[in-house]
Design a protein around this nucleic acid. Structure first.
Length: 845
RNA sequence: GCGGUCAUGCUGAAAUUGGUAGACAGGCACGGUUGAGGGCCGUGUGGACCUAGUCCAUGAGAGUUCGAGUCUCUCUGACCGCACCA
């Protein structure tokens, strides 16, 4: 039997697609479009299994939609700016550009070997000046709209990478790349005013009904809307400041006010900067670890000032003002009013410093003697101990009523606060998009004129310097603008800016003058299905949503502001981990096992290997499988088949050599079956049985449905069923024409998953129209008889075959003749029967 | 601490969305083919018992229903996200 030579056949079809420009996309106004996009890769060197999974999922969808008659846009590009290139270049003494371009070449080749239906004519790379010149132009546009600003700010400083990190890039107090403990530093930074759209970004989530709920919840929490009010507290002090503003969600507990706490960075702190005790306190605060968790769990400590704050609702009451380590400067006003009875954090603080704890919310079932011990009460109740607020229902009535009173007295006003902070986009790095501004000798910001764009990165520069290498480019920095000598901005843009609009660029890659043209994006956008890892749930996806709003801001004629209509987040690819006796990680191919129980180092049966838990593939744990080797050994179709099998795409998948081999075997088995089918010596005009038509149409129905819901693992099971059915029933099939008609449809429905194999088989059948999705013929789905479940008191007792739509009376008569059922019925009276046509009858006795 | 998701054989998982639980695969066992191994083919594989059959089984417990893996509540456990957010 001839083996399936995947090396020859896969190459053949990949060449065919390329030659015929099969996946080239263009606007066709008469056709419905489908924009299928997978998160573009960072060109780190080689593709990994995560890419294989991501792009296979997307490719199956793109091929299916295209066969369904959609005009599909399925592009690919490279997120090619960023620190790894700079680090690698420094290590190997070469140019980041060279390194990056080499990686892109390798990875593009690898992706092509997967047989992806990508329109490579639209390939983009964010580090190319063809791309980033438009980004610079957008930056200036946003500046004109007042959505970009510069301010001095505390930043997360990564001492190893010597760069600023966004909050999101700080994980457990450490830099996401370097792992170094992050420090605080004050720097002049460029910001995007994302908070201008806080409310809109939040509201927009409701419309995204094709997004996973998980992602929407994460974004919602990240934006962090809370309703409350700001309150002015008058101070009793000799200092020149007589008033402090606080934000609170619980103004109704104002009578329980027993201290006011300020952030150590609060403007008030300038009056204490000479105070030795205060300096000591500040140092004490700095000692608690920097990880989020240790900060959150750190003991609450405070520095008592001699300032007093006056309760705005009862001016006879004064409380002390503290600086405290738990107050954040960048939320609210950097000041909180403390009500220990109804906030656990305030209570901890009050107990430590012996402050008054006065309950003002009385829980249901308690009376005026209600006291707080060591647990704050945050539940509902009635307001008491609060003069004119007494008796209000808490929280619904009390909060609104109190705000009303505060507003009337002009002490405060209702306010909505967001947790979201503006997006700091400055990076002190070389390998990024230059920010298109300069400074004159008075330090004023001068925009680079549009006609001078792009501001190109200098190439082949010395990277072996401390800090930002661009700082050392004296010649590059000098520029004359409006007749004045200026110095260029040396900060580059966060790479998340690059990926915030690339999906727009894909619509108009030919346009040299603008980032996109409106007609193109009006046709292609929004992305119908976006597919990628859940790790981008907040950053990239939120920034992209912001960028659309920023671009459309103050524009009359723009497109729908949500960039991604559908979102799918796929799971990770996992593998067991291995360690030798010295606890060094080992690659899977350094390990072998005879019995699957005990593992040894390869060719060294005395060196035992410890098998660890299965974890997401990562270089550091060496539990990686190189896709290139796998494709080389088993072929692209087998890899596609395996990566989709077993686990649903949204869940983690376990890599297994065993599973990979059996996928490979499936391809081989299918090929032998194919050869048998085409060589069958049968007549065309005899014995046409409808059984195979029914089977085929059921499969078309099932697979179409599963494709719509990303139930790709179920489709793989269906493919097994198809093979099993055909190989078992081939002998009984007598009519060749009928067989081939059905077989052709089967090949078409498997082609999104196994494109090379299916196309080759179809080609051998001499079928030239291979890109039409077969329609379900309802006629063959209609069954003449059904197996009806017979239940007695809700328990299944038998299955009986009845004609379609048999009425209940006739059915009951038939049941009476069933010995098995009669045994249960005996002489009992049937009290009630529930009959679901063609499905089930339940008899209650 | 707050928020979310999930829990089904030895394993990965199906289940037409309230109607036959365990599709399909992996693993394992036995048999066949083979000089042997691998490969290939076949059979079996949730548990218990009085084994032609019956009963019990979807983390635990309750509830709604003629009927619950699926809906509701309580609990337990696992995973993920956020984390002093006033």
């Amino acid at each position: 039997m001839e083996r399936y030579n995947f090396k020859v056949i896969e190459k053949k079809w990949q060449t065919f697609w390329e030659k015929n420009q099969t996946f080239k996309s263009s606007i066709k106004k008469d056709k419905k479009k489908f924009y299928c996009l997978e998160m573009f890769p960072y060109p780190s060197g080689k593709i990994h299994m995560g890419h294989v999974r991501n792009y296979t999922i997307g490719d199956v969808l793109a091929r299916y939609k295209s066969m369904q008659g959609f005009n599909v846009l399925h592009p690919m590009g490279w997120d090619s700016f960023g620190m790894p290139a700079e680090n690698a270049a420094r290590q190997n003494n070469l140019d980041p550009k060279t390194w990056t371009e080499k990686n892109i070449k390798t990875m593009k080749n690898q992706l092509k070997q997967l047989g992806l239906s990508v329109d490579w004519n639209r390939e983009i790379s964010t580090c190319s000046d063809n791309y980033y010149k438009h980004q610079q132009s957008f930056f200036l546009e946003l500046m004109d709209k007042g959505l970009v600003y510069r301010k001095e700010n505390y930043v997360n400083w990564d001492p190893i990478d010597e760069t600023v990190l966004a909050n999101e890039q700080v994980i457990d107090g450490k830099g996401w790349r370097s792992g170094a403990v992050v420090e605080r530093k004050k720097l002049n930074q460029w910001f995007f005013n994302i908070t201008k759209f806080s409310s809109d970004l939040l509201d927009g989530l409701d419309k995204l009904d094709k997004w996973p709920n998980k992602v929407k919840v994460m974004q919602k929490n990240w934006i962090g809307k809370s309703f409350g009010c700001e309150i002015n507290f008058n101070l009793k002090t000799n200092l020149p400041v007589k008033e402090i503003k606080c934000f609170t969600t619980r103004p109704d507990t104002l009578f329980g006010f027993s201290f006011l706490a300020l952030s150590i960075d609060h403007p008030m702190s300038k009056f204490f900067k000479e105070n030795e005790e205060f300096i000591k306190f500040k140092n004490e605060c700095a000692k608690t670890g920097t990880t989020e968790e240790s900060i959150a769990n750190a003991e609450k400590i405070g520095f008592k000032t001699d300032i007093k704050a006056i309760n705005p609702l009862d001016e006879t009451k004064q409380v002390p003002v503290y600086f405290a380590n738990f107050v954040l400067m960048d939320y609210g006003f950097g000041a909180v009013f403390g009500c220990p009875a109804h906030d656990q954090r305030d209570l901890d603080f009050a107990l430590k410093y012996n402050l008054k704890v006065l309950p003002v919310v009385c829980p249901p079932g308690e009376n005026d003697n209600f006291k707080i011990d060591t647990e704050a009460y945050t539940g509902p109740g009635k307001i008491f101990n609060s003069q004119f607020l007494d008796g209000l229902n808490c929280p619904d009535e009390s909060i609104l009523k109190t705000i009303e009173i505060l507003e009337k007295k002009k002490i405060g006003k209702r306010q909505i606060n967001f947790r979201l902070k503006d997006w700091g986009v400055s990076r002190q790095r070389y390998w990024g998009c230059p920010i298109p501004v300069a400074y004159n000798n008075r330090g004023e910001v001068i925009k680079i004129p549009k006609e001078d764009l792009p501001v190109k990165l200098p190439e082949n520069i010395n990277l072996d310097v401390k800090g930002n290498p661009l700082e050392h480019q004296k010649k590059w920095k000098e520029v004359t603008l409006h007749g004045e000598k200026c110095i260029r901005e040396t900060d580059t843009l966060d790479t998340f800016v690059d990926s915030s609009w690339y999906f727009l660029r894909f619509c108009s890659t030919e346009n040299k003058d603008e980032g996109f043209n409106l007609d193109d994006v009006k046709y292609w956008m929004p992305v119908d299905q976006y597919i990628g890892g859940v790790e981008h749930a907040i950053l990239h996806l939120l920034y992209s949503r912001f960028f659309m709003r920023a671009l459309g801001f103050e524009k009359k004629d723009f497109i729908e502001l949500e960039p991604f209509e559908g979102l799918f987040t796929q799971g990770m690819v996992c593998h067991e981990t291995y360690k030798d006796s010295e606890n060094n990680w080992l690659f899977p191919d350094e390990v072998e096992s005879k019995d699957g129980k005990e593992y040894f180092k390869k060719n060294n049966p005395s060196a035992k290997v410890k098998v660890g838990s299965s974890e997401s593939m990562s270089k550091s744990k060496k539990n990686t499988i190189d896709p290139e080797n796998i494709i080389d050994n088993y072929g692209a179709d087998a890899v596609r088949f395996f990566i989709l099998s077993d686990s649903p795409p949204e869940k983690d998948i376990q890599w297994s050599e065993q599973g990979m081999i059996s996928s490979y075997k499936f391809i081989q088995k299918f090929w032998s079956l194919h050869k048998m089918i085409i060589n069958l010596n049968l007549k065309d005009d005899t014995d046409r049985s409808q059984e195979i038509d029914t089977f085929t149409n059921q499969m078309i129905y099932k697979i179409t449905k599963s494709l719509e819901n990303f139930h790709y693992n179920v489709i793989i099971a269906n493919l097994h069923e198809i093979y099993n059915y055909l190989s078992k029933n081939l002998k009984e099939i007598k009519n060749k024409k009928n067989l081939l008609t059905n077989y052709e449809k089967i090949l078409k429905i498997i082609s999104p998953i196994l494109p090379h194999l299916a196309n080759e088989c179809l080609d051998e059948l001499n079928i030239k129209e291979r890109d039409q999705w077969p329609k379900v013929n309802e006629r063959f789905l209609k069954k003449e008889s059904f197996n009806v479940v017979i239940q007695i008191n809700g328990k299944k007792r038998d299955l009986m075959n009845f004609n379609k739509d048999i009425n209940e009376k006739d059915l009951l008569l038939e049941i009476k003749n069933n010995v098995k059922i009669n045994k249960f019925l005996k002489d009992k009276e049937i009290k009630k029967s529930i009959y679901i046509k063609n499905k089930l009858i339940n008899l209650i006795v």
